[in-house]
Simulated scan of single mutants.
Amino acid sequence: MLIHPWDAAHDEGEWRSWLAAHDFGQLAVNGAPGEPPWVQPMHFRYEPDPGPYGQAIAHLARPNPLWHDLEQHPVVLLSVVDDYVYVPGHWTAPEGSPSTHGTPTSYYAAVQLRCTAHVVEDPEEKAALLNRQVAHFQPEGGTAEVRPAEPPFGRMLAGIRVLRLEVTDVRAKFKYAGNKPQDVQERVSAHLAERDGPGDAAARSHQTRRRATGPTAAG
């Protein structure tokens, strides 16, 4: 992922705050030589500890074909993308230029977690991690705890494998035209508010926030 200086996270807190509100991504696992990578969409729970970058917890069905290659190549990438919109070219034309000279572009936020994957097989540890994952998605409760050899889920434990993804590096990108003149950014922001389509409010919020807190704003 190419990250220009104007698209980079302003600080570690920016990507951490954004990731705390996101829990669905795509896990990329190296395939066999000559084969493409496996890409698995999945829910996950991100935990800021342990280590400098924390970890992610997920689980997948045992018959999933990626397990063999994951065990051979445990360095994986968890990619999370959201708050994306298409920006028409006529919104971005430089001041004084014809609107047709504007460049169409995409706005989006993306965080990529480079991880070392640890496959968890111990039933007690699997149950504990699954319960933590469910607690993240269902803080209100309403689902029985997973307990090995106990109903209703104990017998299902054998059919899944749990992944503990130790995060070793993070790449974060917030592509919201930070390199454009302020008048162009403000014009795009106004158009996003007017269009008010899927993702427009979030993209506008990122653009406004980064314009107010970025290096230029700070002097």
Rank of each mutant, 00 (worst) to 15 (best):
D169F: 01
Y53I: 00
R62G: 02
Q40I: 15
P139V: 05
A203D: 07
A201F: 11
D200Y: 07
G89F: 13
E71A: 15
E71F: 08
S79D: 13
A28W: 01
A109Y: 06
R62H: 12
L78P: 03
A93D: 12
V119T: 13
Y84P: 07
R147S: 04
P152Y: 10
H136S: 12
T100I: 08
S17H: 14
R204Y: 04
L78N: 07
A109E: 07
R132K: 09
L192S: 01
R209S: 09
P88K: 06
S99V: 14
H22T: 02
D23E: 10
L165K: 08
P74I: 07
A158R: 14
P139L: 09
A117K: 03
R195F: 04
L130Y: 09
P148G: 10
V146I: 10
D11E: 06
A203Q: 11
F44A: 01
T105Q: 08
T216M: 15
A21D: 13
E166L: 06
R45H: 08
M156F: 15
A93P: 01
P215H: 14
L129D: 05
L19I: 00
Y53C: 01
N30F: 11
G102S: 04
D200R: 06
A193P: 05
T92I: 02
M1H: 11
R187A: 13
L129A: 05
P139I: 08
W91F: 03
L66T: 08
R187T: 08
P37N: 04
L19Q: 02
Q133A: 14
S189L: 15
N64A: 14
G197V: 03
A172G: 10
P181S: 05
A9N: 10
N64D: 14
K180Q: 13
A218Q: 13
T168K: 09
L192A: 00
G89W: 12
A93C: 00
P52R: 14
R132S: 03
G25S: 10
E121Q: 13
Q185I: 05
P65S: 07
T92F: 08
Y53Q: 02
K175V: 04
A190V: 00
G102M: 02
L130S: 05
G154I: 00
F153T: 01
R132I: 00
F24I: 03
D83Q: 06
A202M: 05
V87M: 04
V184Y: 04
L27G: 12
L77T: 12
K180N: 06
H59Q: 12
P33L: 01
P5V: 04
P139Q: 11
V29Y: 01
V170P: 04
L70M: 13
R209N: 09
P151E: 14
M156E: 13
G31T: 02
M156T: 10
